[in-house]
Design a protein around this nucleic acid. Sequence first.
DNA 1: TGTCCACTGGAAGGGAGGGCTT
DNA 2: AAGCCCTCCCTTCCAGTGGACA
Length: 376
Amino acid sequence: MEEIQQIASILATALHGNRPSNIMIFGKTGTGKTASVKFLGKELQRVDQNLQNVRFIYMNCEVVDTQYGVLQNIGNQIIINFEQRIPFTGWSTERVYNILMNKMDEEDKVFIIVLDEIDKLFYKSGDDVLYHLTKMNDDLRRSKLSVIGISNDLKFTEFMDPRVRSRLGEEKMVFPPYNAEQLRDILAQRAELAFEPGALEESVIPLCAALSAQEMGDARRALDLLRISAEIAERNGDDRVTEAHVLKAKNKIELDAISEAVRTLPTQSKLVLFSIINNDDKGNRYMTTGDVYSEYKQLAEAAGVSILTQRRITDLISEMDMLGIIHARVKSFGRGGRTKEIELSVPKMETKQILEDDEELRPLKNYRPATQTTLI
DNA sequence: TGTCCACTGGAAGGGAGGGCTT
DNA sequence: AAGCCCTCCCTTCCAGTGGACA
């Protein structure tokens, strides 16, 4: 692939002990950014085996998303000696930074640090780390450092400190999404290894490819789709995978993703979601933050969980909006005020089931919404 | 045209929980 | 043991606001 070639030629300079440019790599999920970079990292280290000029360090910023975390993580990938490891908390960031610098300089190598999902790090912790990291080069005397940032968000650099942005983006690259045709090739290749000839109905691969192409050309998803279609066929005892299996698989994947997202929500968010469902049950399909909050308060009370402030609930609502579990947009109702209009965007019954399975929400199992009107 | 509602979302900060250092 | 550090989850406070209505 063209992009891999490009990155490879940039990184190759490291083999001679020179510093490769920093690179920013953009592209939607499943376009092979991470896989490509990891692959190149392996290759680089293989070629470098005798020279030992290069250290390749990878981390995913969805997991490591704080300033301290990033520095600590890099440090611990460099420091092999167990006693000298950097603790995950307790030290000042400054101290970690200094130790990191000394260690790196001692090694006298070219460090290539890959920050996958770098946008997550930036949105969470700002550009301080990136600033320090990209500036480190000036302070290193023997070693060199270059940073590869991977992001599926093209725009996030706009909000960065211009200095950081220009340093980080010495080279920029975009991985285009796969189109249906490319996906078909990828799937066909894989199918040849994984399936007996004739095990797939002819239209299965084109269908998987087309469905995945619609969904941003994610190759990983396309492969999952094929695999799960086959699993479903096998479980049914069918000897060929058909289009019907693929469609079932698609549904299953979508539902599984939702279930997983809901299941792993923190308790408080689950309560908020529960109250959104209850509002919907009452025939209130589009509700405001106020509606959700007053229902939430009752639920939290019934569940015996502490009641958070409305400000906090606003944030939880926004988080679930980003996860795609609900849909919320700010809307003005004139004199009625300006607030969010919230709508459930996952299947109601299944979601409710999952919520009721939660240990902490047990008391709500047969909870009946309090009736509005009380006759005296 | 101005008012006013029901919030929004930023800023600051507290305190608990992890852990190091002296 | 006392004094730090860093992160996470929250609270408190508050200026700002889109648009229906008077």
